[in-house]
């Protein structure tokens, strides 16, 4: 099968998945006991206000009719309006999604660049000091609670050393005097494009602690995963043959062995990437990072159902796309895997 045909087929399937998710979330969100009309009006809604809001929001119509209206709007790219903030959700997402994506991407990059080399070296030097050390790092990083690590890092790097800021995406000085021109919403990218170097430096120093806090779990996972698959691969005959042929250790480890060992690690990383989109709530709160996690948590507490559905759909889209990309990467890396 051709690659494009395969992609097309998967995308068509994805539409079905997204439709299914929209049905399930819509109806679940609406059977939870709550009154969206009352929330829409404010903290002290009067019966008249609630009645008016119910009509305005179309809540007086049967549930299935409401769903078809919702679906119709969705097809036009309209994700609806937040019951709490009364604002189009698409605008909220434009503000919160890039912030989270940037944080998670940097975190995942840290996991790749710290976790994979440590895992590889750990497997290569089995039962030696580096192996014990990296296993300790792995166990520690999957077991440390995020909120505790975040506060500890703040206390050290902000409180005592004054090296890094306590939270936020950029400093107040940047907002006031070197404002970032929003192009993509990723501050690191935007400041590079507009060559706003001081703001780039500022954004970079702000992202280090939260991204590292977010990455610790993934780092631990990556080390463990890479090590175990590498240990297996290093016992294969072709590695023995390569050693016999006198290839350098570096070539053997990183070019021959890692290529066959990396697929499961990538799978784990990709899944933890998508999980972090909404699961980074603790990191976002501790580091005052205005992301999707805090946004959707507030929505869940308030039973702001249009937001809950919209975020679920966005995350579903990411899941579907990431899975597709992963499958294609697997095809590219592993000749035994063929498209069907």
């Amino acid at each position: 099968m051709k690659v494009w045909e395969y992609i097309l087929r998967r995308l068509l399937l994805a539409v079905l998945v997204i439709f299914g998710v929209s049905v399930v979330t819509f109806f679940i969100a609406r059977v939870v006991p709550s009154d969206p009309a009352a929330l829409w009006v404010g903290p002290r809604p009067s019966p008249d206000q609630i009645a008016a809001a119910r009509v305005k929001l179309g809540l007086d119509r049967p549930l299935h009719v409401q769903y078809f209206y919702y679906l119709g709007n969705l097809l036009h790219g309209d994700l609806g309006v937040s019951i709490k903030t009364h604002q189009p959700i698409i605008q909220d997402l434009r503000a919160y999604l890039p912030a989270t994506l940037e944080l998670v991407l940097v975190g995942m990059a840290m996991a790749v660049f710290i976790g994979i080399p440590l895992g590889v070296l750990s497997a290569a030097r089995r039962n030696r000091f580096l192996d014990h050390f990296s296993r300790l790092v792995a166990v520690a990083s999957v077991s440390i609670p995020t909120f505790w690590l975040g506060l500890l890092l703040q206390l050290i790097f902000f409180g005592h050393l004054h090296w890094l800021p306590i939270g936020g995406r950029v400093s107040i000085e940047t907002t006031l005097y070197r404002p970032i021109q929003t192009v993509t919403g990723f501050y690191l990218v935007d400041t590079l494009i507009t060559r706003n170097w001081p703001a780039f430096r500022d954004a970079l120093t702000h992202i280090i602690l939260p991204a590292f806090t977010l990455a610790t779990y993934a780092i631990g996972l990556t080390i463990r995963m890479t090590r175990s698959t590498m240990v297996e691969v290093l016992q294969e005959k072709y590695i023995v043959a390569a050693r016999a042929a006198g290839l350098s250790e570096r070539t053997i480890l990183f070019r021959l062995a890692l290529k066959n060992a990396i697929v499961p690690t990538l799978m784990v990383l990709a899944l933890s990437f998508v999980y972090s989109l909404t699961g980074a709530i603790l990191v976002e709160v501790i580091f005052s990072w205005p992301g999707l996690g805090s946004y959707v948590t507030a929505a869940i507490i308030n039973v702001d159902f249009p937001v809950i559905i919209a975020v679920t759909l966005v995350v579903t889209v990411f899941y579907v796309l990431i899975n597709l990309v992963l499958d294609l990467v697997q095809v590219a890396l592993d000749p035994r895997v063929v498209l069907k």
Partner: peptide, 9 residues
């Protein structure tokens, strides 16, 4: 993510 500025800056 969209390429429109979320706030006018």
């Amino acid at each position: 993510v969209g390429c429109r500025p979320s706030t006018p800056t």
